[in-house]
Amino acid sequence: MHIPDGFVPPSICIAGYAITGGVTWYSLQQIKKDSNPQKKIPRASLFTAAFFVASLIHIPLPPASIHLVLNGMMGAILGYYSFLAILIGLFFQTVMFQHGGLSTLGINAVIMGIPALFAYHIFHFNNRSNTRKKIWTQVLAFCAGAGSLILSATLFTVIIITNITSELDAQTEINAIYLSLISYVIQAIIEGAFTVMLISFLEQVKPEILRQ
């Protein structure tokens, strides 16, 4: 899901950086509203490490293989820190392993970071009290994990399809992209289940992490 250098026109790269800059500013404004903004930094740093490593771990899913993105899980647990964590994780993935590109860092952050904020709002829907039923928490955790990945895949697909250059056989490329959507659906289910497991574990051992 990482767009490499040279695959989208410069206007998309600049727009990606502009949107990322705006969302980063907004996230920092929201973080500043916390009574102790530094309190969640250790947690955000550890999840950034998980996001950074997840792209290197390939899960075989015949006929291809997938790697977890974990943006939905990060959004549900980190809130507005998740966008910054994903941006930093993407930067290190780019410079160390060439996953994505520096010119497309902004648009990749949009593709994976904004769905994380969506996951945050989904998961914390009606979460202001401690009266939420356990099954309801698990359903929202699954929706956050799976829905975030589906949204990322949709953004990726739309950006790629609308920017196929004329030298490529557009129909062949579109067919290949539609075929890859099947694996994204399976990946979304896996990420949703993974998010449910982690949220259920945290509910047992440290429930205060999951409260706003």
């Binding site: 250790p42 947690r43 740093s45 550890l46 490490a49 950074f52 290197l56 290190f92 392993f97």
Partner: peptide
């Protein structure tokens, strides 16, 4: 850069250690 698996593991470990160090610092 076509790193071999050992190089990738070492690079990933250094990156992860950086994030853990940040977490410990804060």
């Amino acid at each position: 850069n076509n790193y071999n698996p050992i190089q990738k593991v070492v690079m990933a470990a250094t990156g992860v250690w950086g994030f853990i160090g940040t977490a410990l610092f804060f």
